[in-house]
C-alpha cells in the first residue's frame, strides 16, 4: 500500500478526513455500547472498517449533490456532515433525531444536506436514485446523485433495472458499490455468478471501475473523483466498485460464525483509520499530539451526542399519526 499522500489536498482537509473517519468509528463503537445497554433497539448495522469509502466518496461532493444509501447508513450520514447529536438521537428513538425518531438506524434522512435516506429493502434505493437524477437532467442541473449499495444488492432485479434506465437515459448517477465480501453472512462467491461485480456494468453499457484499495481513503477519493468528473461531463452513470471489509458482524445480532479469524485478521491490519494516520505521521503532516487532540475532540462530540440523545424527549403519542400524509 502506498505511503505517499495526495498532495493536492491542503493539510487541514487531510485532518478533516481523518477526524470524520474517527468520528464515524467512535460514534458506532459507542452506539454498540448503548445497544448493549438497551438504549438503542431494532437492528444496528455497523460500518466499522469501511470508513474510508464514505469519506473518500462523499468528501469531494458538492452541496447540491444528493446521496441515497442503504441501511448501513451512519457512516454516510456523518461523512455528509449531518448533525452527530441528531444522528445519535435517532438511534435512541427520540423526537430530536434526524428522522424524528420514526426511522431509526436504517432510515436516516436529512433533505437539507441532500441525504435522501437510508433504505432498508435491499436494492430498493436504486430506482429512487435514478429518479432523483432524472429530475436533475430534466431541469438541466449539473448536480449528481451518489447511490451507495452493497454487494448483496446486485443480485436484485432493481439493480439491473436501475442500471439500464440510468444508462439508457444518460442520467448523472454514481452507483457506488461497497463490496465488503458478504451479503449478511453469504459470501459474494456463493451469491454472484460474476464475483467481479463491476463487470456486470458492461451489460448495461455503464462505465465501471473496481478500486481494490478500499481501505485507503486517498485511493477511494481518486477513484471517486474520476467517476464524478466523468458524470459531470455529461457521460451518464458510472459504476464504482470499492473493495472493503466489514470488521463487525452484519448487525449486532450476528454471531459471525461464517468466517474464520485468520481471514479477518489481515483485514484488521488494513484499518483505514490507522492507515491514514500512519501516513500523515510518516509524511510529517501531523503529530501524535495533534492526533490525540483529534481523538479527544471526537470523544467529546460523541459524548455530547449521547448526552443529547439521553436527555431528548421521546416523540409524543400524537406524533404517531403525523407525517403520514403531506
Amino acid at each position: 500500500m502506498s505511503t505517499s499522500i495526495d498532495s493536492t489536498l491542503p493539510r487541514s482537509e487531510l485532518l478533516t478526513m481523518l477526524r470524520t473517519m474517527k468520528l464515524i468509528r467512535r460514534f458506532e463503537e459507542r452506539s454498540a455500547e448503548h445497544y448493549g445497554r438497551g438504549n438503542i433497539g431494532g437492528f444496528l448495522h455497523l460500518y466499522i472498517g469501511e470508513e474510508a469509502v464514505a469519506v473518500g466518496v462523499i468528501s469531494p461532493l458538492r452541496d447540491d449533490d444528493k446521496i441515497v444509501t442503504h441501511y448501513r447508513d451512519h457512516g454516510h450520514a456523518l461523512a455528509r456532515g449531518m448533525d452527530t447529536a441528531a444522528c445519535m438521537a435517532e438511534l435512541f428513538g427520540k423526537s430530536t433525531g434526524v428522522s424524528g425518531g420514526k426511522g431509526g438506524s436504517m432510515h436516516f434522512f436529512d433533505v437539507e444536506k441532500g441525504f435522501m435516506g437510508g433504505h432498508a429493502i435491499v436494492g430498493g434505493q436504486l430506482p429512487l436514485a435514478v429518479g432523483l437524477a432524472f429530475a436533475n437532467r430534466y431541469r438541466g442541473e449539473d448536480s449528481l446523485v451518489v447511490c451507495f449499495l452493497g454487494d448483496g444488492a446486485v443480485n436484485e432485479g432493481e439493480f439491473h433495472e436501475s442500471m439500464n434506465l440510468a444508462s439508457l437515459w444518460n442520467l448523472p448517477v454514481l452507483f457506488l458499490l461497497e463490496n465488503n465480501g458478504f451479503g449478511m453472512g453469504t459470501r459474494v462467491e456463493r451469491a454472484s455468478a460474476q464475483p467481479v461485480i463491476h463487470r456486470l456494468a458492461d451489460r448495461h453499457n455503464v462505465r465501471s471501475h473496481r478500486e481494490e484499495n478500499g481501505q485507503d481513503v486517498f485511493a477511494v477519493r481518486e477513484a471517486a473523483l474520476d467517476a464524478i468528473e466523468y458524470i459531470r461531463d455529461g457521460n451518464g452513470p458510472y459504476f464504482l466498485e470499492v473493495m472493503t471489509y466489514r470488521f463487525r458482524g452484519h448487525s449486532m445480532a450476528d454471531p459471525i460464525e461464517y468466517r474464520q479469524q485468520h481471514e479477518v485478521e489481515p483485514w484488521l491490519e488494513l484499518d483505514p483509520i490507522k492507515l491514514l494516520s500512519d501516513r500523515l505521521l510518516a509524511n510529517d503532516l501531523t503529530t501524535a499530539d495533534e492526533i490525540n487532540a483529534i481523538d479527544e475532540d471526537v470523544e467529546n462530540e460523541v459524548n455530547e451526542a449521547i448526552q443529547f440523545a439521553l436527555e431528548s424527549p421521546f416523540p409524543k403519542p400524537d406524533e404517531l399519526y403525523s407525517d403520514i400524509y403531506a
Binding site: P127, G131, F134, E158, N164
Partner: peptide, 26 residues
Amino acid sequence: EERIIDTPIAESGFVGTGIGAAIAGM
C-alpha cells in the same frame, strides 16, 4: 419525448424513478 416517456418493461425501475422524481419535487 422529454415529457411523454416510453420506458423499458421494468416496473420497479420506472415506478421507482417516478417516485424519485416526485421526491425531487417534480
